[in-house]
Simulated assay, not measured.
Amino acid sequence: MVNKIFFAGTGNMGGAILRGLLQAGNDPKSIFFFDPSDKAAAEVSALGCVRVASFAEGVNNADVTFLCVKPQIFKLVSAEWKAAADAIANEKTFISIMAGVTRAALTDVLGAKNQVLRVMPNLPLTVGKGSVGLATDGVTETTLATAEKIFGNIGVTCRVAESLMDAVTGLSGSAPAYVFEFIEALTRGGVKAGLTRDVALKLALGTIEGSVELVKQSGKSPSDLCAMVCSPAGTTIAGINALEEGAFRSTVMKAVVAGTERSKELGK
């Protein structure tokens, strides 16, 4: 049973997970955090969470520690983390969201005695609709189940080999930004066609939400559903043709691969 959770870092993603846990009903007094920024810390403290003075204090107080700093900062804090981990008597669980930082690198710092799990969440966890990839290599079933329990109320989880974590980063970790861009593009298209921005945005959001639900419930592939909308010589196939002229699918695929490659670079 996970009783206390510590966040080392409460930036965009760490803060999203933290707020998602609160939204799911977790007691804020059971959530500890360390953030060197007084301004950022004040916002989290206002939620009822407990600020600690150091990484070591947070680790000692918690059952599970979330490592939520930027991957570029990992080397700067690794000595402090190692000292804190070496001082721990009992096994602890660490969950890292740092893109590109391997489990081997984390274990070198945090020690083989502790459970170290890599995950890749995304921003929609804030509203309880996120996606999380869990790297299964080298961790126990108990640790995986613990992570699935933590994330279960704020998103969906998928277990993958660690070798695929960069791909998870390139897809679900980065894709919310691609979706936001798509929503904006649909909205601008509606405005260009004569709709007000408010109406265009409302229609775009409702259409995307309904389309996602249809994919979930219908059991049909996205391609099959697309074909159902495309009447012969109709409006939709004309729009699909315009997308194809702009290499829409190819461009999205390139974006996922670019994010994957950047995740690999961050790990070097």
Rank of each mutant, 00 (worst) to 15 (best):
T126S: 15
A83E: 10
L134W: 08
V59I: 15
I31M: 06
C68I: 01
L125A: 15
G133A: 14
K75C: 10
L125K: 06
I97H: 01
A24S: 13
Q23F: 00
R103A: 07
F33R: 01
D27I: 02
I97F: 03
F94T: 01
I31A: 09
P124L: 11
N114I: 13
V52H: 06
M98F: 04
S37V: 06
N90T: 15
A41T: 02
V77N: 02
S131V: 15
P124F: 10
N60G: 12
L110T: 05
F34C: 04
V132W: 04
R51P: 11
S78N: 10
R51C: 09
P124V: 13
S131L: 15
C49M: 08
R118V: 14
S78Q: 15
N61H: 14
V119G: 12
T126E: 15
L67C: 04
A24K: 03
P121S: 05
V44T: 09
F66C: 01
T65S: 14
K113P: 10
V116M: 09
A105K: 14
L125H: 14
S30H: 14
D35G: 09
V132K: 03
N60I: 03
D108K: 14
L106C: 09
C49V: 12
V52S: 07
A89D: 13
V64Q: 02
R51K: 15
R103K: 07
A53K: 12
V52F: 01
N61V: 10
T126C: 10
S131P: 06
N114K: 11
Q115C: 09
G130N: 04
D38M: 05
A104G: 08
E57F: 08
A105N: 09
L117D: 07
V59L: 05
V116I: 15
S131I: 15
P121T: 05
F94V: 05
G48D: 05
A83K: 14
Q23E: 08
A112W: 07
S37T: 06
L22Q: 00
F32M: 02
L76W: 08
M120D: 10
T102F: 04
A41C: 00
D108I: 05
D86G: 03
V59E: 06
A89N: 13
A104N: 09
P124T: 08
A53L: 07
S78Y: 04
G58T: 08
P121L: 07
A53I: 04
P36I: 08
L22S: 07
